[in-house]
Design a binder for these strands. Structure first.
Length: 218
DNA sequence: AACAGCGTCAACCGCCCGCAT
DNA sequence: CATGCGGGCGGTTGACGCTGT
């Protein structure tokens, strides 16, 4: 077995909360060199952190396009609907909430929405559609996230959790759920059209451009 | 004022996947 | 084909602040 990718962490001096100086170093470095090669970034930036920690800090906190602040009701609604469709695919859900991170969405779900749904009598763990085979889908909703693994392959098809989305080939209307009959996310299932992908990518380039790994050629 | 309980959220951990060799 | 590495993801933890007693 290979060792964990962040095994060096034991050697790292700094752990826990980030200081302002560390934040500034990371910001300065990324502004100069852009993202990429997180494993070598800490040394290059003069940080005593592991690459993963740097990436997490940047993605979840320092990125300039982050909204921060309270999640609005409309966003909550969208999260609930997307969760009904996608389950705990926080990165996918966050990808459709511009300026929000997977961590933020996940935390908000666990602290607010879970309880909210429970109070409403909707089981937060099974408000999704019924168990269906996970399709190879492309979610062409209001935002297309080029990093979407779902869109790229069905490699996760062996996961045991379900995807509450039916293949469009079946003709099933994905906008109907047991608990959210009004759901209409305009999610299109199927192989992504290349031109559409390009245009959508440009559309979100402002918020996702800092992700060099987000290549639709992948 | 002091303490306990609870909620929030940043950060960590372990695992998985894709790619290169 | 096997292995190693880097990146990314979801689950979990723990520190901290707030509120109630």
């Amino acid at each position: 077995m290979r060792k964990p990718s962040c095994d060096q962490k034991k050697d790292m001096k700094n752990r826990g909360a980030w200081s302002k100086q560390e934040d500034q170093k990371l910001i300065d470095y990324i502004q100069k060199h852009g993202e990429g090669c997180w494993s070598s970034l800490p040394e290059a930036a003069g940080l005593l952190r592991c690459g993963k920690s740097c990436r997490l800090r940047w993605v979840n906190y320092l990125r300039p396009d982050l909204k921060r602040g309270n999640i609005g009701e409309d966003e909550e609604e969208l999260i609930i609907k997307l969760h009904a469709l996608l389950g705990n695919r926080w990165s996918l859900i966050a990808g459709r909430l511009p300026g929000r991170t997977d961590n933020e969405v996940k935390n908000h779900w666990n602290t607010h929405l879970k309880r909210k749904l429970d109070q409403m009598g909707i089981a937060s763990n099974n408000h999704r559609l019924g168990v269906l085979p996970r399709p190879s889908i492309s979610l062409v909703s209001n935002y297309y996230n080029p990093t979407d693994k779902v869109a790229e392959s069905s490699s996760q098809a062996n996961d045991d959790d379900d995807y509450g989305v039916m293949n469009s080939a079946s003709g099933t209307d994905i906008s109907h759920t047991n608990s959210l009959p009004e759901l209409n996310l305009d999610l299109t299932i199927g192989l992504p059209d290349h031109d559409l992908m390009e245009s959508n990518y440009e559309q979100v380039a402002g918020t996702r451009a800092m992700h060099p790994s987000s290549s639709i050629e992948k």
